[in-house]
Amino acid sequence: MTFNTWIIAVDNRIADLLAAAATVPGEVHVAVLGDRDLAEELARTDVADVLWFEPPAGSVVEEYAGQVAEAVAARKPDVVLTGPQDAARLIAGRLAAQLRTPLITSVQSIEADPPVATRLTVSGSVEQTVSASPLLAVLDSPGGAPEATDAAVTIDQIVLAPGTTISMVSAVPRAAGADLSTADRVVAVGRGLAAKTDLGLVRDLATALGAQVAGSLPLAEDLGWLDKDLCVGISGKQISPALYLAVGISGQMQHMAGVTRAQKVVAINNDPEALIFGKCDYGIVGDLYAVVPALVSALGEPRA
């Protein structure tokens, strides 16, 4: 049996969506909400065709979630895959309503046939396989930019009716924040740190590991020591690095829910009873002010 599979793209990060779609027999189509460059980039991937929705210049993409969902629903998809980006989740919500099918979230992989989604729930402590028809899945990790093919497939453009509810007031560029969602290694710091100036210690460790710096919500929210974009946890980012090293973080569920998909979790904490020692792969029970510099120097030593 073959299935009519659709990928919803709001940026070029679809490599893992393509890989998941490739497990399903049948043609794969991409619906793109974005500019011409994006549509053309995604046309040079391993898909049957591209359905392109171009938001009117200066408009706000969120307003068009309904129109995109309507057009995709009219093409009677059996499987729809998308990522966790804001605009993607809004389109997925609309599709759930249009197709009268459940929105399956935190999906890790897809198997066919028949199409089945593997997803995590209860903060990652339960893995379920579920099915629905049509199968509408939000994958946690949409992947990076796809590999370009030599030939481009057809792009069908759908003209969007200008929205009337949301209008752009201003867009002020800011320094592109670190993208934790694609980071391979992350060093996160929590309330165990005594002073903001001690962040340097953590940054040194991150540099030694080639990692990005992140933090717990209290550190950003209550203390304002880190940009709020760098919060990991249920109210922040849910990330999936190969290595997650938590410094002075106790390991409350609200934080750990953000790293259930990390491959290796390492904890440094001076409290042997800290919850995090029950949720990590490696740990050092000790004073971070002594352990972190020791780690930086150990990482600089040659391999045995």
């Binding site: 792969d281 490696y282 050092i284 004073d287 002594a290 352990v291 780690l295 150990a298």
Partner: peptide, 15 residues
């Protein structure tokens, strides 16, 4: 996750 723990009493060795 089954933690393998190192004693930070000697930070250099644990590291």
């Amino acid at each position: 996750r089954q933690a393998q723990l190192f004693d930070g009493a000697d930070p250099q060795q644990a590291a």
